[in-house]
Amino acid sequence: MSITNLLENWSDFRQQHPSDDRPHREYKWAMSIDLDSCTGCNACSVACYAENNLPVVGKEKFAHGHSHHWIRIERYWDNDGREFADQGAQFLPMLCQHCESAPCETVCPVGATNHTADGLNSQVYNRCVGSRYCNANCPYKARYFNWYDYPTTDNVWPEPMNQQLNPDVTVRGKGVMEKCTFCVQRLTVAKSNARSAGRSVLDGEVQTACQQVCPTGAISFGNLVDPLAKVGKQWMKQQVELNKDKQAKDAEEKAAKLRGYRILEGLRTYPSVMYLEQLRESAI
């Protein structure tokens, strides 16, 4: 009986994420990206196209901002008025941050985007009605809308290119929102294998497509709950905590050695992606 259920479990239903007293149980997928290692080569982006059936929209549509790159490489300059960008560029791979308190989730009218038990921000394509509210509310603008029917009317994968499509990932039709999934199809397989073997997923057993290709190994991905996972150690070392919107680095002067940070943390989205600041040599 629903109302009985409601009354009995009231305290459970009032519980929220992220919270210190109810951490993730088995898995909390998280990422860290070392901007000092990232060279901006775009390999991750292409890997994502290959893994997740992203459509190539062409020049015309790219010009209109209809591109789909779940992981996009942003390039910033900070040469503030100097003649040359003589300290190079800052490259930043931006992907869905899988926020613990994701602004996109609350606003979806049909509940097509939710938080999974593994700490992922899920997007169910078939449930999506295309109100695009999630994108409007995403501070990172890491969500991509299918403005056209790429598989059919736009013929983005002409025969035989459609044979490349990954059967583990839905090919999205027009009118649905999509975004980085942390390669959930790989996670699912890894979790399933681990469960069959009676253990949990080991660090390094599963890689996201972008992590796998990254020539400089700038991307680490893993289970934050696992004490052996590299990503967890990185977070710990950088004193970045999932459930906080102000980290040690922001607070104290002595924490200047730390270079881990999360983007737009002040909005209290509690992202699952930690970035490590780019370094530049001061001697030259």
């Binding site: 901007l35 990185q234 780019q278 530049r280 001697a283």
Partner: peptide
């Protein structure tokens, strides 16, 4: 906005990092 951040390398000891 604090998006891609850069710092001077002499402030960090990379050997301490994971």
């Amino acid at each position: 906005r604090k998006i891609a951040v850069r710092m001077s390398s002499n402030k960090v000891n990379l050997s301490e990092e994971v």
